[in-house]
Every structure is written in C-alpha cells, then in structure tokens.
Computed example of a mutant assay.
Amino acid sequence: METIEHKTVHVNGINMHVAEKGQGPVVLFLHGFPELWYTWRHQILSLSSKGYRCVAPDLRGYGDTDAPSSVSTYTCFHIVGDIVALIHSLGVDQVFLVAHDWGAIIGWYLCMFRPDTVKAYVCLSVPLFPRNPNVKPVDSMRALYGDDFYICRFQEPGKQEAEFAKAKTEDVIKNVFCNRNTGPPILPKQAGMPSNNPPDTSAIPLPTWFTQQDLAYFASKFEKTGFTGPLNYYRNMNLNWELTAAWTGVQIKVPVKFITGDLDMVYTLLGTKQYIESGAFKREVPNLQDVVVQPGVAHFNNQEAAVDVTNHIYEFIQKF
C-alpha cells in the first residue's frame, strides 16, 4: 500500500484527494457509501502491475477531499463536473471507468452526459435505472418500503448524522460493511443503525476480507469529516430527477460490463433482479456486453470478492 502515491488536485472549485499507481491507460475508480479511495486498494495494486495507470479519488464530501457545506452542491452535475475535471487533469481524453454503489450512479451520469470521456465501463452493484417521468425516486422508495427505509430516513439534513453520532464511528462503518441481510435496510426513528442487524456490533465478527486495519482506516477518515457530505448525495436524488428531465429515455451507448453479488441488497430490492433478467437493462444499455452475478457475495463485492472482480475488470478492459 505504501507504493500508492497520493496527491491533491484542484478540480471544479474544490481540492480533491487522489490515490494513484502505475503507468499506461487510465483506469478511474469511483467509490460508494460509506467508502473512500481505499475500497479499491486490491484493484489498484493488481491492475497497476498489469500495465494500467490506476486512479482513485475520494469523491466530493469524502475523506481528504473538500466537503462543501451546502446540500445543493452535491447534485449529479457537481459530482460529474468534478470527475470530468479530474480526467482532464490527468492529461487524457478517455478513461476506463470502474465504479461501485454511489460511484456507479455517478458513473452512469458520466456516461450519459460525457460519453466521450469513457472507453468502457465496468459497473458494480447498481445498474442504470431509467428515469421514471411520473414519480420521483425517493417518493417511489417511500411508497415501496415506508418512511423508515434508509434512503428516506437520510433525507432530513442533520437528522441521520445525529443518529450516527450516538454510536462510535467504527461501529457505524462495521455495521454497514458487515451487513449481509438481503431485505430492505430499515432505520427506525431514534436508532442509528439498521434494525436488521444486532445492536451490539461487537457481536459481529469481521469477515476475512475486511481486517481491523481496514476498519480503522475508514473510521479514522469519517471521524474527521463526519457523514454529512456522503449523506448529501442521497438528499439530492429527487433534485437530480428534476435536473435530468431532458435525458429521459436516453440510452447509454458505451461498452458496459455489470458485476453484482446475488446477496447484494441492491440486486434483491427494487425489482432489480427482474429488471436485469427480463432484458430491460439491456434495452437501456444496448452495448451491455456481460452481466456477472457472483454467488454468495454481498454488496461490497469489490472487497469481498476482490480477486474475482479484478479478473473480470482486466478481462473486459483489455479488449479495448
């Protein structure tokens, strides 16, 4: 890990922390919630040894990157603006894109707004969900799962941060990373963490793929920055829906490989499995070249099944 270089670049009006290693075609990694550049540690070390320049930022609001205070500065346009400026700072016109969770959502927006910057996209966990012109996404989730569904509970500024503050940051991170429940994450009022997990996180053993050192690194960064920046992504979901009305019905034309675990809650909720299997996903992404469903793997597949994910990435991007 000490061979990974770290730097700060000024992009789109903010200072962004970037981890980088290797020479060659750029592979740009975008992390999700509640993660950091560090979620890609295995892929960075492996792919950089295979002739690629691996670049992984802390996204806006995370880790050592600036966290603007206004909720409205975390829209899809702001985040994609950061990424486009980062790509330009690397001195290249196009990148191989690899993204997970919220990073995957931003990845779809990047492919939608600036497909010229993406050679090919390896998407983990979150497929492209087409914009429904008749209902806002948070409203739809509330209708499906109720007010205590985690995304619904994240909407009020300051509220979830206060709930998280009742627990140790390390416990919050551990709870999220170790959760393998495939049902909807429910956050009852006055509870800082999902009700489908044991309240005492000391009773949750760390999996083999996530060490105490890994946990301590994530916790150290979130103790410094808090969770407001990351939660602001969720607070802009309905606003993103309003801002992207002009892109309703637009297909993603870049080459795509999609990888998920069959225990990933994104795969098991929201009709995602049926959406993928029915061919509807392929209709939205006509150049979707492969769908990989990893048996027995949950949401954080880039860490839990790191070698398998890395091999899939390498197999795909070396075609281009």
Rank of each mutant, 00 (worst) to 15 (best):
Q155S: 09
Q155I: 07
Q155E: 13
E156L: 08
E156I: 09
P157T: 04
P157I: 07
G158I: 05
G158W: 08
Q160K: 13
E161L: 06
E161H: 12
E163C: 01
E163N: 03
F164G: 00
F164Y: 11
F164M: 02
A165P: 04
A167H: 13
A167P: 02
A167D: 06
K168Y: 04
K168Q: 09
T169G: 14
D171L: 12
I173Y: 10
K174H: 09
K174Y: 10
V176S: 01
N179F: 08
R180Q: 09
T182R: 12
T182Y: 06
G183K: 13
G183F: 12
P184C: 13
P185D: 06
I186W: 11
I186S: 03
L187M: 10
L187P: 03
P188N: 15
K189L: 08
K189Y: 14
K189D: 08
A191Q: 10
G192S: 10
M193E: 06
M193L: 15
M193W: 12
P194I: 03
P194S: 04
P194C: 02
S195Q: 14
S195P: 03
N197Q: 10
P198R: 14
P198C: 10
P199K: 13
D200K: 08
D200R: 05
S202W: 14
S202F: 10
S202M: 14
A203Q: 14
A203H: 13
P205C: 01
L206G: 11
L206E: 10
L206P: 11
T208P: 04
T211W: 12
T211D: 05
T211V: 03
T211L: 02
T211Y: 12
Q212W: 12
Q212T: 08
Q212K: 14
Q213G: 07
D214P: 07
L215N: 05
L215P: 05
A216L: 11
A216F: 14
Y217D: 03
Y217E: 11
Y217Q: 02
Y217H: 15
Y217S: 01
Y217K: 07
F218S: 00
F218Y: 14
F218R: 00
S220C: 05
S220Q: 14
E223M: 06
E223Q: 10
K224G: 00
K224A: 03
K224R: 11
K224Y: 08
F227K: 03
F227I: 03
G229W: 06
G229V: 06
P230M: 08
P230Q: 05
L231D: 01
L231M: 08
Y234P: 00
Y234I: 00
Y234L: 02
R235G: 01
R235S: 04
N236M: 04
N236I: 03
N236L: 03
M237N: 00
M237E: 00
M237T: 02
N238K: 02
L239W: 13
L239T: 07
L239K: 15
L239C: 07
N240I: 09
W241Q: 02
E242M: 13
E242H: 12
E242D: 14
E242Q: 14
L243P: 09
L243N: 04
A245W: 13
A245V: 10
A245H: 14
A246I: 01
W247M: 08
W247C: 06
T248F: 06
G249E: 15
G249S: 14
G249Q: 15
V250I: 09
Q251E: 15
Q251S: 15
Q251L: 15
I252T: 09
I252E: 03
K253P: 00
V254K: 05
P255V: 02
P255N: 06
P255D: 02
V256G: 00
K257L: 08
K257W: 03
K257Q: 09
